[in-house]
Simulated assay, not measured.
Amino acid sequence: MELTVYLAGKIHDNWREELKAMAHENGLPLTFVGPMENHDRSDNIGEEIVGKQPNAILKDEMASRINNLRTEVLMKKADVVIALFGEKYKQWNTAMDASAAITLNKPLILIRPESLHHPLKELSNKAQVTVETTEQAIQVLSYIFE
């Protein structure tokens, strides 16, 4: 059995690569997908496909539509969603992806530091599992294969 895992969450560090390395070290049969991590490509994809937009708002709208389509397709194919929240940035996209996973009835592992317990309590309550570290998330995934 192999699982596809959608990695939602902050894009300002290498947590995805660390999590993938841990999965590999543990011999877990996982395929990872996630949002476009190239920020410029994500922001400019609308204009790359349909051409220059008349203003920044319409540029953002077109890019958002294409990014949302990409996210929905990949998330629907995923068996599990991991959403990681950190303390440094406001992570609206992470919250949106976690909510989408819930709406799509995808099992959700929420990673968040203890300091974010209160602001994420409702979302955490909807997740199947809430942990504080990527290591704990890997342990949860490992347990599936026992």
Rank of each mutant, 00 (worst) to 15 (best):
T94M: 04
A56L: 13
P113E: 06
A56Q: 10
E132C: 07
G27W: 09
Y89C: 04
A100L: 15
K121W: 06
A137D: 06
V50N: 08
A78Y: 00
V5L: 08
D40Y: 13
I57Y: 12
L19R: 04
V131D: 12
Q136F: 05
D60H: 10
E17L: 13
E135W: 06
I11G: 11
A127C: 08
E2T: 10
H39I: 13
K20Q: 13
E132S: 15
A23C: 10
A95E: 08
D60P: 01
V33C: 15
T71S: 11
K88Q: 11
K10H: 08
K90Q: 09
I111G: 03
P54G: 02
W15F: 11
Q128V: 05
A95D: 03
R41W: 13
F145Q: 07
K76V: 02
T133L: 09
M36N: 13
P107V: 02
K76W: 01
S124N: 06
P54T: 03
L108M: 00
P113M: 04
D43A: 13
D13Q: 06
T71Y: 04
V33S: 13
T71W: 03
A78D: 01
F145D: 10
Y89Q: 12
A137H: 09
A100T: 03
P54C: 05
Y6G: 02
K90T: 05
L3C: 09
T4Y: 04
P54E: 01
M36L: 12
R70I: 08
H12Q: 10
G46E: 04
A83W: 00
P107D: 02
K90C: 05
W15T: 05
I57S: 06
T133S: 15
Y143R: 14
K52I: 02
Q128W: 09
E47I: 04
M62Q: 10
P113K: 07
K88H: 14
A137I: 08
L19K: 03
A83H: 01
V131M: 12
A78T: 04
T31K: 15
R70S: 08
I138K: 01
G27K: 08
K20D: 03
I45P: 09
A101G: 15
E61M: 13
L141V: 07
I102D: 02
T71E: 14
A137C: 07
E87D: 13
L74V: 01
A56M: 08
L108N: 00
D60F: 11
I49Q: 06
A98M: 05
T31G: 09
V140F: 09
T71P: 02
A95Q: 08
L7P: 02
D40H: 12
I82W: 01
L123T: 04
E25C: 02
V81C: 10
M1W: 06
G86Y: 01
N26L: 05
M1Y: 12
I102S: 01
N55K: 10
R65G: 09
T4R: 15
G86F: 01
L123C: 06
E146F: 06
A8F: 00
K88R: 13
H24M: 12
N68F: 10
R41F: 15
L123W: 02
R16E: 15
I11S: 14
S42A: 15
D79Q: 05
V50M: 09
F145L: 12
K52E: 15
N68W: 08
I102T: 03
E122I: 09
H39A: 12
I66K: 04
L28W: 07
Q91W: 01
R112S: 12
Y89R: 10
A56D: 12
M96E: 05
M62K: 11
T4P: 04
V140Y: 11
A63E: 06
